[in-house]
Design a protein around this nucleic acid. Structure first.
Length: 831
RNA sequence: GCGAGAGUGGCGGAAUUGGUAGACGCACUGGACUUAGGAUCCAGCCCUGGAAACAGGGUGGGGGUUCAAAUCCCCCCUCUCGCACCA
């Protein structure tokens, strides 16, 4: 009697066994080659979603595959456990964020275990544990000592809903909060910053040395860092009271600068207009601009506006007096917040000049075209050309002029070459409760004083009451705030801001190497063994956020002496989203598929199989309930095959020497080896599990036929045994439970997961008979089957002899006959 | 506007270096088994013509290179993602 495939009993049984035997625990072993496979850890939001299932299934297949290939595989899991949702839940359900978070972790852990992922659960960590974040506080102190942390008053991004500041990287779309989509407002606040700009050049340079990363991600990072070469030019104020400095990538156009524009936030804007007749107008304008959203809409450009500040400065090239404006389109956050305006060669300045009747002077004439004149121009000319109206530089081409004018200004002491980055420092202060406290103290006498290292951790007080208003309760908590200044022993006040949760996720992968280490953040010996991560897998939405921060942090920890690696992730796989009915799964769309229910209905193996089979990992996965049924059917099909021939193959050991030299047995053997090769290469080289699975399906189809047609031959039974067992091994990383069960039911010893990964027999692939396609003028007209020993010359002859081919070439002039690798013959004829 | 990626049957997707377009699966159609089938097995399944053999067309559109193009080159269209007044 054949057992029925019952996924639940099988899966519970093996999961229990893996758990009890700690099957996936790893130890550092310098004698073995390591492989560190990591998936982006989840935020414990309550339940896992299909995106997690997909991400972790992809990772698990690779981890299991690498283990079978003999690597010492680190495959850990943990929780990105600080963050806003816990506070929101606290308000909504009157439950403490800690309680909510740890309950979620407990539930989600069981969900992950039900999917059969091969994690070393002994390395599990949660970033909200003091045993984790205490080290982050230590990093903060050391970075402070090195000048990599500083406090500064500046214009920051404020999310009114989350009631906190956001980093530039966390402002997404059209200026919205990455978490809640609320439009972000600008606010002037004093904040803690990490000096990521110190590493701008290195972060950029290493983009060239990460061949295992997708180009898309590297491009996004390069653009985000945004390096450009240009010149800083000083424009003295006309009254001699100082100067304004601009950054420009077009120093070649400086002779055309007929006015200047300052950002409304530029410190000089209000200062210059003070006590002039323009003061009121400027003040008005600044207020008005700051009150509006200045991000241009996707389709309509914001109209350029500005007002005269009442003062003039001197163009250092022309020595002319030019007016200084403040304008709504000048950004304070880039360059110096002041720009020289060249209306003829910059579209924004052109529009501005036309609106306010400011003078235009053409200083670049396009090559070989009619010369430009200010009267006839309808838009700015931003292309290359020859200098005009530029004094001694007339006649130079503009690229040369960039250098010569910069040199000229340098000699005058009014300019210098400048490399400008778009990247700005990482604001890490969050006005939130559920995060790692920033270990700093304010003292009236000593100013800002770091907490002493021996006093770490600064514990997040768990007795805090979350207020329904949504603000952080920390500033209200006397026991927390009131402390002693470590320097003068006088009264001190603790920093109540917590750290951005992206700080925690910037080094968790290092801590997995030694999650239990108590003498420091990282145990050098273990971390050096495991780092860097060989393969990192996660969503592309972190292309600049988490992935840039992690790269930065790795370099910081290296420079602080805790790490030896320059980069954290050697290879990166960004998986696509899970889509249903044309859009991303979301509660609001109502197209969410619950992993729990699927596992309940079909079992984890089916869910895993479908996630891998439906599309290659980097593409979006289109969810299909019928597709899931198909995956379930395939598992059953394999189950039935294995058990149907259990009697025939029991105790029969496969050996390649016994394979028949020809016939159905030989074909099956060839198919088997083709499958091993295809599956191995698809997993190893490109993570294309979908095609790996198709190949196994083909093998199963072949085994079915073979089993039905080839009977009464013990030799064929051993071949069948070899086919079924190899199929099981190939499938085991994908559907681990059912493969282990069948391995057992077939009476095989040990665990299928401990089997070495099969190798293909290259001989078998070579000697295969080939179908050769015969084309006439590129169109397929016939096919012949040839053996391995047939030469190209013979194939050519055979092809021409074919009656069907004769019909096509008869009476025509025979041209070239091309033979391609025993695959194809193309006969060229003219008529 | 700039940058990146994609466009292949009714659907998800194959075709790895230019060499049989549509593997594998889903859906659908027919058949077998059956009291029954929403189980299982077998077969068919790009379009047009044809009973079939076969012929012609076909990978977003147009052009080109080549014995041969989904694949390479040029132009255009559509979609997705990222950045976006960056001086």
């Amino acid at each position: 009697m054949k057992e029925k495939y019952n996924p639940h009993s099988i899966e519970t049984k093996w999961q229990k066994q893996w758990e009890e035997t700690k099957a996936f625990r790893v130890k550092e072993d310098p004698g073995r080659e390591k492989y560190y496979l990591l998936e982006m850890f989840p935020y414990p939001s309550g339940r896992i979603h299909m995106g997690h299932v997909r991400n972790y299934t992809i990772g698990d297949v690779v981890a299991r595959y690498k283990r079978m290939k003999g690597f010492n595989v680190l495959h850990p899991m943990g929780w990105d456990a600080f963050g806003m949702p816990a506070e929101n839940a606290a308000i909504a359900n009157r439950v403490h964020p800690a309680r909510w978070t740890y309950d979620n972790i407990d539930y989600m852990r069981t969900q992950l275990k039900r999917l059969g992922f091969s994690y070393d659960w002994e390395r599990e960590l949660a970033t909200c544990d003091a045993s984790y974040y205490r080290w982050e506080q230590l990093f903060f102190l050391r970075m402070w000592e090195k000048g990599l942390v500083y406090r500064k008053r500046s214009l920051v991004n404020w999310c009114a809903k989350c009631q906190t500041v956001l980093a530039n990287e966390q402002v997404v779309g059209e200026g919205q909060c990455w978490r809640c989509d609320t439009p972000v407002q600008g606010q002037e606040l004093e904040q803690w910053f990490f000096r990521i700009t110190h590493y701008a050049e290195e972060l950029l340079a290493w983009c060239e040395k990460l061949p295992g990363w997708p180009d898309k991600v590297l491009t996004m990072q390069r653009n985000w860092i945004g390096k450009s070469y240009g010149t800083e030019i000083d424009f003295p104020l006309a009254d001699g009271s100082g100067k304004l400095t601009v950054f420009t990538t077009r120093p070649d156009t400086v002779f055309g600068a007929t006015f200047m524009s300052l950002a409304v936030e530029h410190p000089m804007t209000l200062q210059l207009s003070r006590n002039t007749s323009e003061e009121a107008a400027v003040l008005n304008f600044v207020k008005k601009v700051q009150g509006t959203n200045r991000r241009p809409d996707s389709d309509v450009d914001l109209e350029k506006e500005g007002v005269f500040t009442g003062v003039y400065c001197i163009n250092p090239a022309t020595e002319e007096k030019i007016p200084v404006f403040t304008a709504n389109f000048v950004l304070m956050g880039y360059g110096t917040g002041a720009v020289m305006a060249v209306p003829t060669h910059d579209q924004r300045d052109f529009e501005f000049a036309r609106k306010y009747g400011l003078p235009l002077r053409v200083v670049i004439q396009p090559n070989g075209e009619a010369p430009l004149s200010p009267e006839s121009m309808i838009e700015a000319y931003e292309g290359p050309g020859i200098l005009d109206h530029s004094g001694p530089f007339n006649g130079q081409d503009n690229e040369t002029a960039k250098k010569s004018i910069t040199r000229y200004l340098e000699e005058k002491g009014q300019g210098r070459e400048k490399v400008q980055y778009r990247l700005r420092d990482w604001g890490v202060s969050r006005q939130r409760y559920w995060g790692a406290p920033i270990p700093m103290i304010y003292c009236e006498r000593c100013g800002i004083v770091p907490v002493k290292e021996e006093d770490l951790p600064v514990l997040l007080p768990l007795e805090a009451e979350i207020t329904p208003s949504g603000g952080s309760p920390l500033p209200l908590l006397k026991e927390f705030i009131e402390t002693v200044c470590p320097q003068c022993q006088g009264p001190g006040r603790r920093e109540t801001d917590t750290m951005d949760t992206f700080v925690e996720s910037s080094w968790y992968f290092d801590r997995y190497a030694c999650p239990d280490y108590e003498h420091g953040p990282l145990d050098t010996k273990r971390v050096d063994y495991w780092m860097p991560v060989d393969q990192y897998i996660g969503g592309v939405e972190h292309a600049v956020l988490h992935l840039l921060y992690s790269r930065f942090f790795t370099k910081v920890l290296r420079d602080l002496g805790w790490l030896k690696v320059d980069e954290p992730f050697t290879n990166l796989l960004t998986q696509g989203m899970v889509i249903k009915d044309g859009s991303k799964m979301s509660k609001s769309k109502g197209n969410v598929v619950d992993p729990d229910q699927l596992v309940k209905k079909y079992g984890a193996d089916t869910v895993r199989l479908f996630c891998l089979f439906a599309s290659p990992p980097e593409r979006d996965l289109d969810w299909s309930d019928q597709g899931v049924e198909g995956s379930f059917r395939f598992i059953q099909r394999f189950w039935n095959l294995a058990l149907d021939c259990r009697g025939r193959i029991a105790g029969k050991a496969f050996s390649p020497e016994k394979v028949p030299a020809e016939g159905a047995g030989r074909s099956l053997y060839i198919k088997l080896n083709q499958t091993i090769k295809k599956v191995t290469e698809d997993i190893e080289d490109r993570f294309h599990f979908n095609t790996a699975i198709s190949a196994i399906m083909e093998l199963v189809n072949a085994l079915y036929l073979f089993q039905a047609e080839q009977k009464d031959d013990p030799l064929k039974d051993t071949l069948l045994a070899g086919g079924v067992e190899t199929g099981l091994i190939l499938l085991s990383p994908i559907v681990p439970h059912v493969s282990e069960e069948l391995w057992n039911l077939l009476g095989k010893k040990g665990s299928v997961h401990r089997q070495p990964w099969p190798q293909w027999d290259p001989q078998a692939l070579q000697e295969e008979e080939q179908v050769v396609v015969i084309q006439v003028n590129g169109k397929v007209r016939s096919r012949i089957t040839v053996g391995a020993s047939v030469s190209e010359e013979e194939i050519k002859t055979l092809a021409l002899e074919q009656p069907r081919i004769q019909e096509w070439i008869q009476g025509k002039e025979l041209g070239k006959v091309l033979v391609v690798q025993r695959k194809l013959v193309n006969i060229v004829v003219r008529h």
